[in-house]
Each structure stands twice: as structure tokens, then as C-alpha cells.
């Protein structure tokens, strides 16, 4: 089932918040100088996610192994609930991402100052890694025998 537009948008920012290095999130969050009042519904909790792969890359799923994950849920004073699931053991990151998720639901205009810089930094890191890999592209030539 295709996601609704609001789900699509929320998926976008939750993913960007989770994938950001903690230093990037701290910087973006502090630059906004927001101090929203909120309640913690579920304290940052460290646990595991079982990661699945597919046999042959495209076949039946199997369990590859686990990874650490931290989750947190908060509620703003107006009742908006925010959630976060972030890889690793990062309580501050999970709590801040949950607060951001709640804020973004009531003010999607925060995507510009908060989410776009994170996405840009992630895209730039990916691009730089691919560019370095690209320089190692090899052209192999088959030698003809007996000449």
C-alpha cells in the first residue's frame, strides 16, 4: 500500500534525523534555539533490532544479525506525540529526534532549517564516498595468447 503524503513526509524526516551523526544533529538543533516544553512518554531505551537479509539478495528473508538501537517517545504540551528510533546507543540523539518529530508534525516549515541541512550533509558524504570509489574504476583488457 502506498504511503499517504503525510506519512511520506514523516518518514523522510524521521529517516534524516536517525541517520544524522550526533554532532550534525546537535549543531542543527542548537542553531534553531528552540526550547519546547514536552513530557517524556517513553524514556530513551537501548535495545536491539534484528536485521534481515534475503537469500541471494532477492529471495526469501533470513536473520543476518542484530544491531543496537535507541528509541524514545515524547509528547509536546499541545499533545502532539513524537517518536524516534535511531541506530546505536544514543539516548540524547533519540530524545532530541523524538522532540523534532513532534515539532515537525505541527510545523512542517521546520523541514527547511532542520531537516534539509542534515539531508544535504548525508548526500554530500555519500557523493564523496562514491567519487573516491569512482577513481578506482578499473578497465581490464584481455591479453591475446601466442602473439
Amino acid at each position: 500500500m502506498p504511503l499517504e503524503a503525510t506519512q511520506q513526509q514523516r518518514r523522510r524526516w524521521m529517516s534524516a534525523l536517525a541517520k544524522a551523526p550526533e554532532t550534525d544533529l546537535r549543531q542543527a538543533w542548537q542553531a534553531l534555539r528552540l526550547q519546547p516544553a514536552y513530557q517524556v512518554l517513553r524514556k530513551p531505551e537501548i535495545g536491539l533490532t534484528m536485521v534481515r537479509g534475503r537469500a541471494g539478495g532477492d529471495g526469501a528473508p533470513f536473520h543476518l544479525g542484530e544491531m543496537t538501537v535507541t528509541r524514545c517517545s515524547v509528547a509536546l504540551d499541545d499533545g502532539t506525540v513524537g517518536h524516534a528510533y535511531v541506530s546505536g546507543r544514543r539516548p540524547w540523539h533519540a530524545e532530541t529526534a523524538a522532540v523534532c518529530d513532534a515539532l515537525l508534525q505541527s510545523s512542517p516549515d521546520l523541514i527547511g532549517p532542520l531537516i534539509e541541512p542534515l539531508e544535504k550533509a548525508q548526500a554530500e558524504r555519500r557523493r564523496a564516498a562514491r567519487a573516491k570509489a569512482e577513481a578506482t574504476r578499473a578497465e581490464f583488457f584481455t591479453m591475446v595468447r601466442g602473439e
Binding site: 535495545g47 536491539l48 534481515r52 537479509g53 543496537t68
Partner: peptide, 10 residues
């Protein structure tokens, strides 16, 4: 640690 989630296949 508790297991909180299962991923979608990579």
C-alpha cells in the same frame, strides 16, 4: 538487551 524491532529485508 531487549529486542525492540525486526528490520525489513535489506
Amino acid at each position: 538487551l531487549p529486542r525492540l524491532a525486526y528490520s525489513l529485508p535489506l
